[in-house]
Design a protein around this nucleic acid. Structure first.
Length: 270
DNA sequence: AAAGACACCTGGGAGC
DNA sequence: TGCTCCCAGGTGTCTT
């Protein structure tokens, strides 16, 4: 399940192989992704050079001559660097073939991902309304508290709202709320500035730790066997319903909040 | 404007 | 073993 740390790690993983490389061919085997892959995409990017890899939210941006390839991994997508000889596997939907004989291969079983040629830069409809980057200074206590004080919605869906802050998915929302001792259903406007400040710190910390863990577990992005493998992080509450709270030992609870499963500690989180 | 429901899709696990 | 059912997850879009 690619959350921001996996996206960041994927970007770093492919960067050394594709930066300043010419695209010799683009192969689309499956057009039906989250949005249909643009007709003639292959022709449009053929011969262009990838100048830079960056990230906005969970979108990876591969800057090319006349725009950028905007890749979203959805919930099950992955990118791998493979040799040309590597057999095509199930759900290998798109190949970016490069002049250095490497292929950036996009695999996505659930096809919630997307592969878009963006000619509008940050004005693209999918980018223009995105909230702040969690690891930048723009996510700070002032910013988040200002938003929270006017909202009655539960804090968990609020921090998962990509128009507020990008890159906080279900897993890291649960982890950061647990670490900051805030109950996931607490209305956003009923949380003190001090506690919001703590939450901001924990969001940054949990994401940063996961990126560092990913960087070490993914050092070879061309690894022969298996997928790049989303790193196993030591989650404190995610997926641990019924287990004892790591802080107070009381049994962790599970609840649907905004159609998303949420695990939390009823005594540590208020 | 805010909040909630819903859709998209497949693999994997549970229950029969 | 095989079938059916349900769930996970991100996020855009529609409805209230």
């Amino acid at each position: 399940m690619p959350e921001l740390p996996e996206v960041e790690t994927s970007g770093r993983g492919i960067t050394p192989y594709c930066t300043n490389q010419q695209i010799t061919r683009l192969v689309v085997r499956q057009k039906k992704l989250r949005w249909p892959v643009e007709t003639g995409l292959s022709r449009k990017v053929n011969g262009q050079t990838i100048h830079r890899v960056s990230r906005r939210g969970k979108y990876l941006l591969l800057e090319i001559d006349n725009g950028e390839l905007m890749i979203h991994l959805g919930m099950s997508g992955s990118l791998r660097v493979v040799e040309e000889s590597r057999p095509i596997e199930k759900h290998d939907h798109i190949d970016i073939c490069l002049a250095n004989q490497k292929i950036i291969r996009f695999n996505d079983p659930r096809r919630f991902g997307s592969f878009i040629l963006n000619r509008q830069g940050l004005a693209h409809p999918l980018l223009e309304k995105l909230g702040v980057e969690p690891l930048e200074d723009e996510l700070n206590p002032d910013y988040l508290y200002d938003i929270c004080k006017n909202r009655k919605v539960a804090i968990k869906p609020l921090i998962m709202n990509s128009h507020v802050v990008v890159g906080v998915g279900n897993i890291y929302a649960q982890e950061s709320l647990f670490r900051s001792g805030i109950h996931p259903t607490r209305p956003a406007n009923k949380i003190s500035r001090q506690r919001i400040s703590r939450l901001v710190d924990e969001i940054k910390r949990v994401l940063q730790e996961a990126i560092e863990a990913g960087g070490s577990s993914l050092k070879d992005f061309t690894s022969a066997d298996g997928k790049p493998g989303y790193f196993q992080h030591n989650f404190l509450v995610y997926g641990r319903q019924g287990e004892p709270c790591p802080y107070c030992q009381s049994q962790l609870k599970q609840k649907q909040i905004g159609q998303r499963t949420t695990v939390y500690c009823g005594s540590c989180q208020r």
